[in-house]
Computed example of a mutant assay.
Amino acid sequence: MAFVQSNPFDPNVLFCNKAASSAFPEPTNYVIDLIQPTTVMLNQISKEGIKCKKCGKKKIGCQRQFKTDPFYLKTAK
């Protein structure tokens, strides 16, 4: 999920508060794979001429991964 928000407290500027989401065919935490879709989403939801107060990317729907290798389980502390 990517999000963008302008300053909600300044009555002299337009307000923007939008979000977009995208799914990957398989889970990843590889930054290179995350940058391009995030940039596309931020370009789609941002408005020209409105200064952003906050914008970014959140990972949602992530599953915790467990190590199932017996050797790993015996040596991990």
Rank of each mutant, 00 (worst) to 15 (best):
M1P: 01
M1V: 05
A2W: 00
A2E: 09
F3S: 06
V4M: 01
V4W: 06
V4D: 03
Q5F: 01
Q5D: 01
S6Y: 00
P8F: 13
F9E: 13
F9K: 04
F9I: 01
D10W: 05
D10G: 02
D10T: 02
P11S: 10
N12Q: 13
N12A: 12
V13M: 04
L14H: 10
C16S: 03
N17S: 11
N17L: 00
A19T: 10
A20Q: 05
S21H: 14
S21A: 13
S21F: 14
S22K: 15
A23C: 12
P25Q: 11
T28G: 01
N29M: 10
N29S: 13
N29T: 13
Y30A: 12
Y30N: 15
Y30V: 15
Y30R: 13
I32Q: 07
I32V: 05
D33Y: 08
L34M: 12
I35S: 07
I35F: 11
Q36D: 11
Q36P: 03
P37E: 07
P37Y: 09
P37Q: 10
T39Q: 15
T39H: 11
V40E: 15
M41K: 03
M41L: 15
L42Y: 02
N43K: 12
Q44N: 15
I45N: 10
S46N: 07
K47Y: 07
K47I: 14
K47G: 06
I50Q: 04
K51T: 14
K51V: 09
C52R: 05
K53Q: 10
K54R: 10
K54S: 01
C55N: 01
C55E: 03
G56E: 11
K59S: 12
K59G: 12
I60R: 13
Q63W: 04
R64D: 13
K67Y: 05
K67A: 08
P70Q: 02
P70N: 00
L73S: 10
T75K: 07
K77H: 12
